[in-house]
Simulated scan of single mutants.
Amino acid sequence: MRPQRFSGGRPPGGGGWTPEVRAGVSQPQASLARLALREHHAAAGAKFRVCGLWELPADYGDAQAEHAALRSSVVVFDRSHRSRILVSGTDAADLLGRVFARNVMGIEEGRAVRTVALDECGLVGDIALIVRTGAISYLVCGEPGQRQWTVARLQGAKAEDFDARVEDRTLATCTLAVTGPGAEATLREHVADALPAALEPLQSVAFEFHGFRALVTRTSDTGEDGFEFVLAPAAALHLMQILGTAGVLLAGDTAHETARIEECIPAYSPDLEIGLTPAEAGLDALLGIGGSAAERVLCAVILENEVTAGTPVMAGALAVGEVRSCVRSFSLGAIIALAVIDQRHSFPGAALVVGGRPAAVVARPFYRRRREA
């Protein structure tokens, strides 16, 4: 049975791809937000937890098995809590250039770049994937808790004579991430119409999936191969059901966060929310701006005990930083953390103390996939 169609269309004069949207979607509220497919996750055995303003599946009964499937085969994550902001118009690229640290003027249609939005002080305010979806349209996929900030920043950066529209599509659409070394083969075998072309990393293509407009980009923030689909909730459910029938595991936020930290990929919350520059966050290479001087940097640290965000990092009696993310790594069998540390104590091998126990800075990333010869 074909899933129910939601109404939607292209923005006037915007051009390019735009996702299907539901009529009458309310504006974001400060109350707890739920995924559009929450009932499906609950029926699949999800255990939920609150992450920022969102209720997310933590796992489906076995986070370690979900993580193992991510590293060895393929899983599907519901990443719909990430923001999806459509920026369109003849001045769309100029507007994005006023907010984001990387120039998007040179992005070809059907390509994407990773970049950061900066506040007036040059601190990172959002981490985003920007996809050029048409001649004068771009989709900004950003951090969950920064959606309203980024929308306001874009609206505030518009000149009076700018032809640019900013539309928040987050609550009207879904993002599914099909991720793992077997992602491409699985999609080609079981959902061939969901991967209409061979894609290079950070390449994107719009297509029709069971009567719905959709967008797929080859990207992942777990260190594995992956494809992110932006599509209407009904189409997302259909894709999830097809993958489930093919034996693909649903994976929750615990598996995703563990993989992210293993790869030393920062998230705005909790890693950067204390106010970091791109150089301090270790994002210079991402932005192509070279090595900038920084008095403190985001480091990879091995711990002996799990701690919470904000736990001080000590060098003797001196506080030299604080932990931001901390998990028990399924890949390494160790407790790992991302911590902001004074650059004088940030070199690999630096002996520190966290939570009253020995800790040590190590080279980034914690985990690197072994490539086939």
Rank of each mutant, 00 (worst) to 15 (best):
W149Y: 09
T150V: 13
V151F: 00
V151W: 00
A152G: 11
R153E: 14
R153F: 02
L154V: 00
Q155A: 11
G156S: 05
G156P: 02
A157D: 00
A157R: 01
K158N: 02
A159F: 08
A159K: 12
E160S: 14
F162V: 06
F162G: 06
D163C: 10
R165S: 14
E167H: 09
E167N: 09
D168E: 08
T170A: 02
C174A: 13
L176G: 05
A177E: 15
T179H: 09
G180S: 10
E184V: 02
A185V: 08
T186N: 02
T186M: 07
T186K: 03
L187F: 07
L187G: 05
E189D: 12
D193L: 11
L195C: 06
P196A: 05
A197L: 11
A197Q: 13
A197P: 04
A198V: 12
L199W: 09
L199D: 08
L199S: 10
E200H: 10
P201K: 11
P201S: 11
Q203H: 14
Q203V: 06
S204Y: 06
A206D: 12
A206M: 04
F207W: 10
E208N: 12
F209Q: 05
G211C: 10
G211I: 09
A214W: 01
L215C: 10
V216F: 03
T217D: 07
T217H: 07
R218F: 06
S220A: 15
D221C: 09
D221Q: 13
D221E: 13
T222M: 05
T222N: 02
G223N: 01
D225M: 08
D225G: 09
F227I: 04
E228H: 04
V230P: 00
L231D: 06
A232H: 00
H238F: 11
L239H: 01
L239T: 00
Q241N: 12
